[in-house]
Amino acid sequence: MNDFIPAFEWQRVMVEPWAENLSTTFWIVLMGFLITAACGLIGNYLILRRMALVGDAISHSVLPGLAIAFLLSHSLNTVPMFIGALGAGIVTTVMIELIHKKTRVKQDSAIGITFSTLFAIGVILISFGQTDAVDLDTECVLYGEIAFVPLDLVKTELGPGMLSVVEKIPGLNSELFLDGNMLTIAPPSVIRMAVVTGVTLLLILVFYKELLVTSFDSGLSSSLGINATVVHYALMGMLSVIIVSAFEAVGAILVIAMLILPGATSSLLAYRLPTMFGITVVHALLSAVGGIHLATWLNCSPAGAMVVAGSALFALAWIFSPSQGLLLRWFGRELDKLDEEEIERLVKGT
């Protein structure tokens, strides 16, 4: 299998990405981290609300919105893309509701029919438009193009005054940002993702109480005067925006993993929502870094490798979780016995 799986060389896999290809690695890891963090944060709520598969549906069905926006505006600019994705997200939610409320088709089938129809429309639109479309193709839909993120860096020229100021700021004076008198800002897609992640975090902080109450106790939320429908649709809108900004980098299907994996991992390890958010962010960082090394080693898609790394982290959490881990299950009998002994000791002690 040596032709297929390259040998693991420490130098090539672990050191070179950071030593020699720093600018490429840094932007890919940052992009991966931002996407996984934003998806993971909102994914926590999806999991709590048992809406993980609505995320699945929306991630498939933003495609026709994107394709239409792209075919109309002939560009992948932020505004038309966001409008297209929001429209597609709303259409998805409405279609699912319509099918399962108006007929006897159950919600699961309604979800399946809706997203497959919209996704098929998207793929056909892209296939027909492929002659003049350069950036949006079926490859991008499936694999994501996170590897191309560092290719279009935005740079500005600094005047001598600014240059001396910038050079004094620690971190900015490295070769990553400063090339002669050219200051590298960031690839536009990373900037957009950073804004989206920041807004997501901000909204979660500001509306923490509303999201918490509507997720756990719908009765309490209506008695507090919180409109659960508005919260639901706002969450769906935010989800569409996050998915569309992640779309180009990781594709339609891998984004589902980014939505669910961090939240599922944290739900195995913690019971308090703030702790879960913390674990989500750590999971995002580890899977982005792990993914880039895995991709370097195996020479495969970085987006796919990040998800594989995230799945591996989930598997670790599943095995070692202190409350519901597999180890605990396998050796649970001994632990029970220990507990009994300890209780006995405590009882005798008092």
């Binding site: 999991i47 993980a52 589902i256």
Partner: peptide, 23 residues
């Protein structure tokens, strides 16, 4: 074995297996 609900378990399996396939 865990408290993960069916929808999350389905989505998680779907996307993880798919990612391995993509790699």
């Amino acid at each position: 074995t865990t408290k993960i609900k069916e929808d999350s378990a389905l989505g998680l399996t779907l996307a993880s297996f798919f990612a391995v396939g993509i790699c």
